[in-house]
């Protein structure tokens, strides 16, 4: 099966001018995307992760046609995004985390109406889709509110519906969970998971939150300084990366080092102890084992930062 997204030695260089003192200007090249190659099949849900400035958004901009590559080959649904941007637009949906695709001053409903007309969505499809997303994303109460009055989480849900109204084959999400609270994040991840498994929409999700990808995707690509440093599944990522997650335990009083199967004591400081376990392992047994203690005050789980995963990847 041919890949729906084909990327071959993709490069994007920016020329950055910086002022040095009063008159001189420094001119140097930034290789935002530095020879990236991958293929995504139809129906896949792929995570695209990397630290800030790694080249994630730049890649998405090239895939959607906003930015023209400096060099390399790029095909999305058989089309070259740089050349056939308007044609490709009908088949893709994009959600930018930090900006909205909705019209700020219009009621939410009006934004959808307008999109329906812009994308020429057949009336019946439009209404069916709208109803479905209003239901799934809980937008009913928000439809008549101007978008500028919505909270970040509400607006994000609105944006996702907007991106999916025209039944795109591919959905790009660029940092969709930034600024969202825990509950909203969980709901969003669940929605995306179901969208992928039930509708078969290809999803490319860029983020710097590993948990986003863990919950939604089966494959993860790690990008760092414009280069792809990993492309595979999660178990492989954690195995190669060797990153660890930490359970932070607060006891009532300083105590003996905790012994919990599956976890190793990383550090101890007074009444607080840090237990470390492989990032791919479930924290459930550890939490369960600790939950029986009656001197347990508090417990929290720290995920490895993407930077740690990458560092671990590099140092393997």
């Amino acid at each position: 099966m041919p890949s729906i997204i084909e990327v071959d030695d993709l490069r994007r260089t920016f020329i950055v001018r910086r002022k040095r003192g009063r008159l001189r200007r420094d001119r140097h090249e930034v290789h935002a995307v530095d020879g990236v190659t991958f293929g995504i099949d139809a129906g896949e849900a792929v995570g695209y992760i990397g630290p800030n400035g790694a080249g994630k958004s730049t890649t998405v901009k090239m895939l959607t046609g906003i930015l023209v590559p400096t060099s390399g080959r790029l095909r999305v649904a058989g089309l070259d995004p740089s050349a056939r941007r308007t044609e490709l637009a009908k088949h893709i949906g994009v959600v930018f985390g930090q900006r909205t695709g909705l019209w700020w001053d219009l009621p939410l409903r009006d934004s959808y109406e307008l999109l329906g007309r812009i994308y020429r969505i057949p009336r019946r499809t439009y209404e069916a889709n709208l109803e479905r997303f209003v239901d799934l994303l809980d937008l009913g109460a928000l439809l008549d509110q101007p978008v500028r009055q919505l909270s970040l989480g509400q607006r994000m849900r609105g944006d996702i519906a907007a991106a999916l109204l025209h039944d795109p084959t591919i959905l790009y999400l660029d940092e969709p969970t930034i600024g969202l609270d825990v509950v909203s994040k969980a709901k969003l991840r669940e929605f995306l998971r179901e969208l992928n498994t039930e509708s078969g929409t290809t999803i490319l999700l860029t983020t710097h939150d590993l948990v986003d990808i863990e919950q939604v995707c089966r494959r993860v690509m790690v990008i760092d300084h414009g280069r792809l440093v990993f492309d595979g599944g999660f178990e492989e990522l954690h195995r190669q990366g060797g990153a660890r997650r930490t359970v932070v335990v607060d006891l009532a009083a300083p105590s003996e080092p905790l012994e919990v199967p599956g976890a190793a004591l990383a550090r101890m400081d007074g009444a607080r102890q840090w237990l470390s376990l492989p990032a791919g392992a479930s924290t459930a047994p550890v939490v369960a084992a600790l939950g029986t203690r009656d001197d347990l005050v508090d417990l929290s789980i720290q995920e490895p930062a993407i930077e740690d995963v990458i560092t671990a990847l590099y140092s393997r």
Binding site: K61, T64, I66, A89, F96, G101
Partner: peptide, 11 residues
Amino acid sequence: GSFDQMLVRPV
């Protein structure tokens, strides 16, 4: 950023 958003639409 709204111009980027416009480039993504089929108009």
